[in-house]
Amino acid sequence: MSNFAPTGKISDNPKNLASLFRIPAPPARRKRYFGKGLPYMDLDDLRGYLVVVEGSDGVGRSTQISLLKSWLQVKGFGVLETGWTRSQLVGPTIDLAKAGHAMNNLTFNLLYATDLADRLEHEIIPGLRSGFVVLGDRYYYTALARAAVRRSEIDWVRSLYGFAIEPDLVVYLKVDMNTLFHRVIKSSGLNYWEAGMDQNPGCDPYESFCRYQSKLIRQFNRLSREFGFRAVDARRPVEKVQVSLRRQVAALLDIKMTREDREVRLLV
C-alpha cells in the first residue's frame, strides 16, 4: 500500500510508462565491520544498501521511513525495514524488562546489543545479500548516545558493538528540544523511559524529559560530526523532511530526482 497520493495513471502519461523500465542500478558498496566483526560471516557478497535513520524518540522517524519505503519500491527497489528492539529473539524480553524496570546499565546495553546482533544476522545481512535497501529505524548510534547519557563506559559499548556493519548512509532527523516536546506530547505522550525517569528519579516528568532528551540531542550532534551523518532539519513539515530524506537516498542510489519526487503529497 502506498502512503502518498498517486501523481497520475501510468497509462495517461507515456513518460511514466518509460520510467517503469528505468530502475537505477547503483554499484554495490563494500561493507565493513565497526570492530572485530563476525569471523564466521563473509561480507564480500553483500550487494544491497544499509540506510539508517537516526534521531530522537518522537521526531517522526517511522513516518518518514514508511514514506521512503513506498517511494523506493515505486522506483523498483526491494526494501526491508528493521527497527530497534524489534528482534524476534529479545524484542519481547526488552519490553518485559522495561515494564518491570529489571535492567541496570550493563544488562541494558547487553540486551540492546543482542537485539541488533539478532537482526543483523537474521534480517540485515541476508537482506543485503539479496540486494535489498535495508532501512534501519535507529542503529548502533542510538546505543552510543544512550550509553553516553547513562554514563556507561563508552569504550566498552563501542567494542561490544564491534560486530555491527557500517551503514552506507546515516540520515539524522535533527530537532530542538522544544519542538520535540510538542510532537511527543501530542502523539504518544510522555512515557517513563522516553522521559528518562530512570535517570532522574522523583523528578517532574516534564523537567526529566527536557533534561534527558536535550542530553541525547547533544550526543547525537556529537556523533553526527564523528560519523558524518547527513543531518536533515526535522522541525519542518513531514513533506519537506521527506524530500530532504529522498535527496540523500537518491544520491546514494543513483536516483535522478524528478519533480514528482520533490512533490510529496500525503493521503489524509
Binding site: 529473539l89 524480553t93 544488562t107 547487553l110 539478532d118 544476522e121 537474521h122
Partner: peptide
C-alpha cells in the same frame, strides 16, 4: 531476565554464535 529469550532462541533455532554469546553475557551481568 533472559530465560525466556534463551528458551525462545533454542526452540526456534534462532541463536547464532554471537547472540548466544551476548545472551550469556547479559545473564552474567
Amino acid at each position: 531476565l533472559v530465560k525466556k529469550a534463551t528458551r525462545r532462541g533454542k526452540k526456534k533455532n534462532l541463536l547464532t554464535p554471537t547472540t548466544f554469546s551476548l545472551l550469556h553475557a547479559t545473564d552474567f551481568a
